[in-house]
């Protein structure tokens, strides 16, 4: 019972993927379909996540206020350069401690290629930074060095941290540069 209220034909559109004139055998012999080249289409996909920093949130609040926070197990003193809410040895909750934002380059690389999000920033320097009296490291960007002059001699270099004035609430709100 088709009528104008319930049409029996969907309107044709040019949105999305449109493939015209795909070769197809005429007649009843379908055996040549086994030799057909694959049809490849694009399937867009994007999403914005609502990400909570949870118990690590004070670290980012610290960066926004130009203060560099680490966490420490209160009894053993084991100190994490990248904050953890609980200590991996005792299982106890850690405390927030502020330290001077200066350290030493423990390991590094210069990325000449990367993930899509960071391609426009290549080449960029990634480093693991160590801090006096802190047991673990912190991953950060380093600026102020010539990426073309990468050398293992950079390891051990003293670094100073600098905070972004306009915080983006990412770990890159702090970055480092050579202290000397």
């Amino acid at each position: 019972m088709a009528d104008e209220k319930f049409p029996t034909k969907i309107e044709e559109t040019l949105e999305g993927t449109v493939l015209f004139n795909v070769p197809f055998p005429e007649g009843d012999d379908l055996s040549s379909l086994k030799d057909m080249a694959p049809i490849i289409i694009k399937q867009p996909y994007s999403i914005e996540y609502i990400h909570s920093y949870g118990q690590d949130s004070p670290f980012f609040a610290g960066l926004a206020n130009r203060r560099f926070l680490v966490t420490r197990e209160p009894d053993t003193g084991y100190t994490y350069g990248t904050p953890r809410g609980h200590d991996m040895y005792t299982g106890k909750e850690t405390e927030w401690v502020e330290i001077p934002c200066e350290g030493v380059m423990h390991a590094f690389t210069v990325c000449h290629f990367g993930s899509e999000e960071f391609l426009p920033e290549c080449p960029y320097i990634l480093a693991q930074v160590e801090f006096e009296g802190v047991d673990t490291l912190f991953l950060a960007r380093v600026v102020g060095l010539d990426p073309a002059e990468a050398s293992e001699d950079w390891i051990g270099m003293k670094l100073k941290g600098r905070f972004r004035r306009w915080s983006k609430f990412k770990p890159t709100d702090v970055y480092f540069y050579p202290a000397e």
Partner: peptide, 16 residues
């Protein structure tokens, strides 16, 4: 967020 790239992570290991 710092520049996530596995080749970069492994390169840091080897510089050390």
């Amino acid at each position: 967020p710092v520049g996530g790239f596995y080749s970069g992570y492994y390169a840091m290991m080897v510089t050390r």
